[in-house]
Every structure is written in C-alpha cells, then in structure tokens.
Computed example of a mutant assay.
Amino acid sequence: MKQKYLLYVLLTSLLLYYAMPYLQPFYGGTFGLFSLVWILFALLVLSGNFLAFLSAPKGEKRLKVKKAKAPLKRRMYQ
C-alpha cells in the first residue's frame, strides 16, 4: 500500500519539476493566476500523498481463514 503513495509522490514531484520553468506565478493577469493555482494544487496533492505515505501501516497481514471441509457423503449399501 505504501508503494502506491510513494509512486504518487514521485509522479507529482516530476510534474512540478517539469512545469516550474513554464509557470510564472508573479506574472500579471490570468496566466499568473492559473500558474499560482496550479502550483498550489500540485503542492496540496504532494503533501496529501506524502502524509498518507507516512501514516500508512507498514504491512498488512491478511488472516487466512481455513474453510471447513464438508463431510463426505457416505453411501450405505445394504
């Protein structure tokens, strides 16, 4: 389960690394607003997945339930 969160953290970091040269949050107008909102949303996703990664249990042990075998039907010949 932890691998999934780690994968999401790495993918979000990769997206931020790729997008940062193209985004200019202090540029005026709609482009600046879009850049700022995109960066904030990416940081929110990154922090949420990082916290989920830290709080996920180490390993979930699944209990094996043994099913009782049905009693054999015996034919009685007379």
Rank of each mutant, 00 (worst) to 15 (best):
W38I: 11
V9C: 07
A70D: 04
T12V: 11
G48F: 07
V65E: 10
R74L: 13
W38F: 13
R74P: 03
Y27W: 03
K2H: 05
V65D: 02
Y5G: 00
R75G: 03
F50C: 08
A42E: 02
L33E: 03
L14M: 08
K4R: 07
A52M: 11
L63G: 00
L54N: 05
F41W: 07
L44M: 11
K66R: 03
F31S: 14
M1Y: 07
A19S: 12
L36K: 15
L54Q: 11
L11Q: 14
K61Q: 05
K2M: 07
P21N: 02
P57D: 01
Y8H: 10
G32F: 11
Q3S: 13
R62S: 13
G59I: 13
R62Y: 13
M76D: 11
G48I: 00
A70L: 06
F41S: 08
Y18Q: 09
Y27S: 12
Y17T: 06
K69V: 06
Y5K: 00
S55H: 14
K2G: 10
Y18C: 13
N49S: 06
L6G: 06
L14A: 13
F26S: 08
Q3G: 04
S13G: 15
L10F: 04
S55C: 09
K66Q: 04
R75Y: 09
L43K: 11
P57N: 01
L44F: 12
Q3C: 04
L10I: 09
S35N: 04
L72F: 06
F26T: 10
K66E: 13
Y17W: 06
R74I: 12
M76P: 03
F31I: 14
V9Y: 04
V37N: 06
L11C: 10
S13E: 14
G59P: 03
K69T: 01
K58V: 12
F41P: 00
A42V: 00
G48K: 02
S55F: 14
K73T: 10
K4P: 00
T12G: 05
W38H: 13
L40S: 13
N49D: 06
M20H: 14
F26H: 08
R62N: 11
L63P: 00
L40H: 09
K4E: 03
P21I: 00
M20Q: 14
L40Q: 09
K58S: 15
L44W: 12
P25Y: 03
L23W: 15
Q3M: 04
L63W: 02
S55T: 15
A19V: 02
V37C: 08
Q24A: 05
A70S: 09
F41Y: 07
Y27T: 01
Y8C: 10
S47M: 04
I39T: 08
S13D: 04
M1Q: 06
A42D: 02
Q24N: 08
F53Y: 15
G28E: 14
K69H: 00
L46G: 04
N49R: 02
K69C: 04
Y18W: 11
T30S: 11
P71I: 01
F26D: 12
P25T: 01
Y77K: 03
T30R: 09
G59R: 15
Y18E: 09
Y18A: 14
L63C: 01
